[in-house]
Design a binder for these strands. Structure first.
Lengths: 135, 135
DNA sequence: GTGTCTGCAAAGAATTTGCAAAGAC
DNA sequence: GTCTTTGCAAATTCTTTGCAGACAC
């Protein structure tokens, strides 16, 4: 499935601007809006910031990408639409950490004790790490 | 230890403005900047927004309070300085979820497999939940 | 063709800054 | 007294909006 098809598969129109934004985010994996905007405008300076905002928003709305709750407070987007955990590296890199078993384990853990009366909807683990120094 | 002493214990000056900000946040537990500002200014209209920003920043720098990475994108502060987990309720309430055992468990889990070469510094679990409907 | 999307420029939020006067220790 | 903090107003930065023309399907 090419990019235009991916976009259309979510029921939204595959304009050239949207295809470019998707392509840029795909190349980055996770990225803050300003970086996406910079790369998009490098490829096509006619595309305005407002358009990039609107496109990312519509992608997220459509479930094509996801919004990332980055600890540094900036708005990030993630090319992967489904919820998963993240590892935030010292050097600003972001790694995906998919671990369904851990998610289930946390949910179960909450079902006992103090919080057993809550209906858990989502669990997201944020890990802060750095590379171990080379020996 | 009263508020002024708590502030001074972190090596920063206990101005009346700082004492008031601390008191307000203490009453709220967790709160977004605009709510803190509103309450502070209700008590003393001379205190400007800029001052509230600067105070919260200095408190956080000093390790007196912590910054909360709220999923809704707004800046929140938390009267508790040390890292813990949070439950974000449907109704915007935030609950503290302290569970050292879970933290350790996640750390151990990462030490096997794909990410074993990372030095984990912090783990923060975000849980999204709502109250179960009353029977 | 029709309804959605884009570019533009301007508006609106949120946050920060420079500077002089005031205040904590 | 000294060095930090505050109030003020203006500047920045980030994000959204209204509208007319362009474009996807």
């Amino acid at each position: 499935m090419n990019i235009a098809e991916k976009i259309r598969s979510k029921g939204i129109k595959a304009t050239p601007q949207r295809q470019l934004v998707y392509e840029v985010l795909e190349g980055l994996g996770h990225a803050p809006i300003d970086e996406i905007t910079r790369k998009v405008r490098a490829a096509n300076p006619c595309i305005t910031v407002a358009t990039v905002y609107r496109i990312l928003d519509s992608f997220q709305e459509a479930g094509l990408i996801s919004y990332l709750n980055h600890p540094n407070g900036k708005s990030y987007y993630d090319i992967t639409p489904d919820v998963h955990h993240h590892i935030y590296m010292d050097n600003n890199e972001i790694l995906d950490y998919t671990d369904e078993e851990l998610t289930e384990l946390i949910k179960k853990r909450l079902q006992t004790g103090k919080f057993k009366d809550l209906a858990i909807e989502q669990v997201s683990v944020q890990i802060f790490a750095k590379n171990k120094p080379q020996k």
